[in-house]
């Protein structure tokens, strides 16, 4: 939300401080379709090399937001800046550092994968040997080299998805925008897709990723914006989001011995918020499960308690989402 923006960028950007400017900056984006306001004042930014997840249920406004960012849909309000330059349908150059992977398979299905890549690559300004090399390398990255000459219409669903992604990253954009790239693919293809994105991320490409799969957002994204009914209702790292709603990590320690004394000791440890004693176990609410775990085990040893099992419960984004919107994300099943 804009609050985050202000915290990190107080005051107007000063000329000459370009490197610290975010790569992408959306300010108060609004888009209506007739009576319906699909996007209602969305603001966020993405820094160079950062992976940002836009998480929300069907109809939340993810695709509409992305379309405005990619300059293919006119906003009714607000602005998009890419690399310090305003994105505008009249100024194609502003979009050069962006690669879009749309939600649908937006390819000529009567052309081959290679022909599609060559066409869109040439629109991006690539020519000759450079274009050929990029096409080959990108097909290799998405694992379609051996099917390069086949028409898109002859591809399986998962292969079409991968070809769809290939077009978006062909010109090596500084920001790759992916709109639900794993929708409707089998787990193997999905993993392949997620791995390619992780690889690009490791190479320093910034990524804007929309999904309604929590696991994907948690696995890939440095920061997540939760969007619901056209508004970003919360934003931050997973930990920040979880803290924002008052949820914390929990350690459930099953043990034999003097549990009351053990609970009292654990209650004095740093980073422990609450301790509840149950039958045969204690329930510890902590700031960070990983860093507190060792101290809890040490306390058990000194209190002569025999630990028979420890369960770590980290509240996930699903819980955050449920808390913020009162609805679960749509479960598409895997």
């Amino acid at each position: 939300m804009s609050g985050t923006d202000q915290r990190e960028h107080s005051g107007a950007p000063v000329p000459g401080t370009a490197p610290s400017l975010p790569l992408l900056r959306c300010d108060g984006l609004v888009r209506r379709f007739g009576e319906r306001t699909a996007v209602d004042g969305v603001s966020f930014h993405i820094s160079a090399g950062e992976t940002y997840g836009l998480l929300g249920p069907n109809g939340a406004g993810k695709t509409t937001t992305i379309s405005m960012i990619a300059g293919i849909l006119r906003p009714d309000g607000g602005r998009v800046e890419l690399d310090g330059r305003r994105v505008d349908a009249h100024d194609p150059e502003a979009k050069r550092s962006l690669g879009l992977v749309p939600q649908e398979i937006a390819l000529f299905d009567d052309l081959s994968a290679e022909e599609n890549l060559r066409f869109f690559g040439s629109l991006q300004g690539l020519r000759g040997a450079d274009l050929r090399a990029r096409v080959a390398a990108t097909l290799e990255l998405v694992g379609l080299s051996d099917r390069a000459k086949d028409r898109i219409s002859e591809f399986s669903g998962g292969m079409q998805r991968r070809a769809n992604i290939a077009v978006g990253l062909l010109h090596r954009p500084r920001l790759l925008v992916l709109d639900e790239p794993t929708a409707g693919v089998d787990p193997q293809s999905r993993n392949q897709i997620l791995e390619s994105i992780e690889q690009l991320r490791a190479e320093g490409m910034a990524v804007l990723y929309t999904t309604h799969y929590m696991e994907e957002a948690e696995r890939l994204c440095d920061r997540v914006g939760i969007i619901d009914r056209g508004r970003i209702v919360a934003e931050g790292t997973r930990r920040e989001l979880v803290a924002q709603i008052g949820e914390h990590d929990r350690l459930v320690v099953r043990a034999d011995g003097p549990l009351d004394a053990f609970a009292a000791t654990v209650g004095t440890l740093a980073g422990v918020r609450e301790v509840h004693v149950g039958t045969g176990s204690i329930d510890v609410v902590v700031d960070d499960a990983a860093s507190t775990l060792a101290a809890v085990v040490d306390a058990a040893t000194s209190d002569h308690v025999v630990v028979t099992g420890i369960e770590v419960r980290e509240p996930n984004l699903e819980a955050v989402f449920l808390h913020l919107t009162g609805t679960a994300l749509r479960d598409r099943g895997d």
């Binding site: 379309s67 990619a70 300059g71 293919i72 349908a89 009249h90 194609p92 150059e93 979009k95 050069r96 962006l98 879009l100 749309p102 939600q103 649908e104 398979i105 937006a106 390819l107 000529f108 869109f120 629109l123 991006q124 300004g125 077009v167």
Partner: peptide
């Protein structure tokens, strides 16, 4: 409608 024209626009072609 099938997303190819939007993709051309996103690929830096002007309308």
């Amino acid at each position: 409608h099938n997303g190819v024209v939007p993709r051309m626009l996103a690929s830096s072609a002007a309308p």
